[in-house]
Each structure stands twice: as structure tokens, then as C-alpha cells.
Simulated assay, not measured.
Amino acid sequence: MKLVTFKPAGSTPQLGVVVDDRVINLVEASDGRLPGDMRSFLELGEEAMALARSLATPALADRLGVPLDQVRLLAPILNPSKVVAIGLNYMDHVRESGGQVPTLATMFAKYPSAIIGPGDEIRWDPELTSKVDFEAELAVVIGKKAKGVAEEDAYDYIAGYMNCHDVSARDLQLEKGDQWIMGKSLDTFCPLGPYLVTRDEIPDPHNLAIRCEVNGVAYQNSSTKELIFKIPYLIAYLSRGITLLPGDVITTGTPDGVGAFRNPPVFLKHGDVVTVEVEGLGRLTNPCVEVRSGGR
């Protein structure tokens, strides 16, 4: 299923499912048995997922669905308890950066306040950062509480997958005292979406094309085959010490082609449009806007 959070005109955000380019409002279709937000939905577990799946039919889409182009899609999950990000996790990215192959997964955080959805503006103050970079990533969404999970059981804890754009202020991240969280968690620096595609739709998340375009030009064009630390390992590794909750997001790293390691470097600027696309997960497009302090 392609689960979405959408906003009908004049209404609050709602939980939906996309069928044949139409959005079914799952709150209405379930007569209120399903909640309006994704995190609450995931917290209800397999029974809620099964109910949503039973409602995701072409017949119901014809009868109740709204054309996809007539609704505003938001980030699929607006309020995860945490976004855990993994750095330097593609072999081709290690090669382009000149780094060493890590022996342990590098972890950092992106704050939930950085989350935006498809079509929303990526915004930054040019007086704060002048080196804003693009990073296409595959994001994993946790479906149930995970603590001390064994690798062989890890897929049972995955609700699905999303596109993620790990926007990065390289000067804050690397040049001003290794401020990774500041460089990665500025407001609007975590676009997600357009869908949360359920686990059953992606049989092998380690064999997906991954791509990032800026103004229609492909800068990143790789495959999740290049992942160093695979998803089951990451869930097992993280859950040894950190309890993962329904709706939590794990971003799994970016492949080669980022702007910082190009010669000359390429950084985002006002008016650019960035599209992240992981195979099977749709296209996540966001415009870029420089906004000086005070909105000037």
C-alpha cells in the first residue's frame, strides 16, 4: 500500500491510501475506526494495517476517492519520536569522500521539527549557512516497538519505506566545530514522502535505484546495493541501546554524487528544485528558498 498523510481543503491532516491515483480517506472509509495521523495508526499494529489494506480497493477508490492532484500531500509521518540517521553508509560515497570504510555504523539525529513534505520549501538563512547540500536517502519506518531485536527478525519491525532528503549545511556540519546535528537539523532540512510504501511492496530494499536531481539534472544515480550496513543490522544495532517506537524513522545514508565532494563543489541556491527518488517510492520534490533573518 501507498499510505499518505494529506490535507483536504479546509480540513485537518488525514490518513489516506493511494489507489489508482486517487486518495481514500481511511478515517472516513473505516467509519472512524482508524485515526487521522500515521503515528497513531502504526501504534495500533497489524490489526489496523489489515483494516487499511481491506479498504484499499479500486472499487472504494472509485466511490470515495479524491484525485491525487486535488489534495495536498504532507510528510507521511509528521511527528515521529525520533529520526535516526546513518552517515557514510554507501561504498561509493566512501570512495568519493576519501574516507575509510567504517567498522561501526555512524549515527546522528535529525530533529522531527526539520520534517517537511512534498512541495514544501527547503529554507535557510544565507547568513547562517552558504553550503547547503543534497543527499538522497532510503528511509525505514518502524512499525512496532523494537528493543533488542535480532537481525533475522528485523523485517518484522518495519512498517514500510519512504524517500528522504537529508539536506545538509556542510559549513555547519564540518567547518564550524563538527556541528553534525546543527548542520543536519535546521528547520525544513528533512523532506519525507510522498508515500509510506508498506514493507510487502518492497521485497528487497537492498536492490533499489536511488537518484537525486537538481533542476532536472541527475547528480546522484546509484543503488541501495552499495549500502555497507544493511537494514536488518541497523535495526539490531540501534535497538540494542535505543528503543525504537512505531513511526520512528531511520535514514540509511546517501550514495556518491553529493555536492560537497564535486570539483568544483555544487551547493543548493535560491530557486533550485530538488527531486529525490528511490525506486518504488515515488518522487519527492521540493523548491529551495533563501530567507534572511527576520524573513528578509
Rank of each mutant, 00 (worst) to 15 (best):
E96Y: 06
I116R: 05
F134S: 01
A29R: 01
L104A: 13
F134A: 06
R33P: 01
A48S: 12
A154W: 14
E46A: 15
A59E: 14
K147T: 05
E47I: 11
D37C: 14
I122M: 02
P102V: 15
L104G: 06
G148T: 03
G117C: 07
I115Y: 05
V66F: 07
L60N: 06
G99N: 10
A59S: 11
G98H: 01
D125V: 13
E137V: 10
A139I: 14
P102K: 08
I142T: 02
E151R: 14
A146M: 10
L73V: 08
A50Y: 02
L64N: 01
G117T: 15
L128G: 02
P58T: 09
I116S: 03
W124Q: 10
V83S: 05
M91E: 09
A114V: 13
N25H: 07
K110D: 04
D125C: 11
A154M: 02
D69W: 09
P126K: 07
I122K: 05
G117E: 01
A146W: 07
T57R: 04
I116L: 07
V71A: 09
L26K: 00
C164N: 07
A29H: 08
T106V: 13
L26Q: 08
L26G: 02
T106Y: 10
D31R: 11
L68G: 02
A139R: 14
S81H: 11
M49W: 08
N25E: 04
I77H: 09
A56P: 03
I115C: 09
K82T: 09
M162F: 01
I158R: 00
Y157T: 05
N89K: 05
D62V: 15
L60S: 00
I158V: 13
I142P: 00
V83R: 03
L42R: 05
K110S: 06
L138E: 03
I122Q: 01
D120F: 11
G148V: 06
D120V: 14
G36R: 14
P118A: 04
Y161G: 07
A150F: 14
L128Q: 12
A52R: 01
K131T: 13
Y161W: 02
D69Q: 12
I142Q: 05
I116W: 01
I115P: 09
D92H: 08
S130Q: 15
L51Q: 07
R123D: 00
R95K: 13
M107N: 00
T57Y: 01
M107S: 09
D153I: 15
Y90L: 08
L44K: 13
A85F: 09
V101T: 15
L42V: 10
T103A: 04
M91H: 12
L78N: 00
S30K: 14
S97Y: 03
R33E: 11
F108W: 07
E135A: 15
A139P: 15
V167L: 04
M49F: 10
D133A: 08
D125H: 09
V66C: 06
P118F: 04
Q100Y: 11
S97K: 10
G99D: 05
Y111C: 12
E151G: 13
P67S: 09
N25P: 12
